[in-house]
Simulated scan of single mutants.
Amino acid sequence: MLTSVVIPIRDAADQLLYTLFSLNLQFTAFEEFEVIVLDNASCDGVAERVERFDAHYPVRVIRFRRRMPYYHLINAGIARASGDLVILLSCNMMVPREFIGVHRHAHELSDKLVLLGLGTTRIYSVYEPDFSPIQQQECREWLELYPHIKRPHTMHSTVPLLEESQIVSGQLFHIGLPCPEAEKRQAIRQKYGPRLEQHRSPWTLFQTQHVSVLRENLLRAGGCKELPKLEMERDLAKRLLRKGCQFQFADKLTLIKQERAIRKVRAQSVSKKNRRAQ
């Protein structure tokens, strides 16, 4: 089963390269999956850096010259995917070696499956000067615990902190910080089981940062509608459910979420919306 990993990105080249490197370590044969990077008008040279990256698998960059809404990116990724299986993945999610294999095996057992992300731990793989005060403090405290992780040589520039050998060894999966959202999902899994039996609204757990669906089912459901991200995800999930898809947690996978700065543009966007409402 050819698998397409679809990764939207905007201005997170350093985190993306760590994610792409983690995909170089997959147990699955490299000719059995591809990666599609959706560069949403980035300003940090994402496309050029991906093209220079030594990927062991086929990787394609779809570059948008002007910023596009999120639903448009996901639809473009689905349309360009060559695989029977589509995995939607956030650009800052490093994956374990069995990542592709677990998704493929689950869908080989069921052709009506939506496999949802479950386990996640957090790390500071890249220092960003735009980190919030809370992130700055947490980053310092985390680095103090693990002296083998590189320190930023400046507080005024973006600095990658990891060596490839640390990803290869798998040690990062054991030194991560708790992820509150993942802890909530684990509580849901404990209550309803991995197949979410008796859960009344499984569509609320559908997130494009880590989920897999057969491409045929995504197309049958009609793809993503023109909605804000959260509403778009839930709308798509509801239509997949109506098409007979079953939702299930990916019990065997724990991903590493790389911390990113919360961009000021988001706050500005919210502010503009509030002004329009007034």
Rank of each mutant, 00 (worst) to 15 (best):
C224Y: 13
V159I: 12
S271M: 07
L162E: 04
P96W: 05
V37T: 10
E144F: 00
R189N: 11
W142L: 05
N40G: 11
I149K: 05
R266V: 15
L2V: 06
Q246N: 10
P8Y: 02
G223Y: 02
A12F: 08
R276S: 09
Q190W: 03
A81Y: 06
P180S: 08
R276F: 13
L172G: 01
P58F: 12
E98N: 14
P147V: 10
R52N: 15
E48T: 13
R60S: 14
H156L: 11
E259L: 08
T154I: 14
R140I: 10
K229E: 13
L177C: 14
I123F: 04
I167A: 01
A47C: 09
G77S: 07
K225V: 04
I9W: 00
M93A: 04
I78C: 07
D111S: 12
Q246G: 11
L145D: 10
I262P: 03
R60T: 14
K252W: 06
F30L: 04
L255A: 14
A267S: 15
G77R: 07
Q166K: 02
E128H: 15
Y71N: 13
K264I: 15
G77F: 03
R104Q: 13
P129F: 08
P160V: 03
Q246K: 12
D39M: 08
G223K: 06
K225S: 11
A13V: 09
L109N: 11
V61Y: 03
R63K: 15
H56Y: 10
F27V: 14
N92C: 12
P194F: 02
R97G: 10
L205W: 00
Q135H: 14
H105P: 01
S269E: 11
Q166L: 13
L118K: 05
G193M: 06
S90M: 01
E98D: 13
D44R: 03
L25W: 04
L85F: 05
Q190P: 04
Q198W: 02
H174K: 12
T158V: 14
D11W: 00
V46G: 00
G45V: 05
F99Y: 15
F30N: 08
R65I: 06
Q268W: 09
G101T: 15
V59G: 04
S132V: 12
W203Y: 11
L118A: 04
P147A: 12
P96R: 07
N92I: 02
L118W: 02
H103T: 12
T120D: 02
G222F: 06
I123N: 05
R200S: 13
V265S: 14
E138I: 07
T254D: 03
L161P: 01
H153P: 02
Q135Y: 07
S165N: 04
L85S: 08
I62E: 11
C245T: 06
Q268A: 05
L143F: 02
W203Q: 06
H174W: 09
I74M: 15
R220C: 07
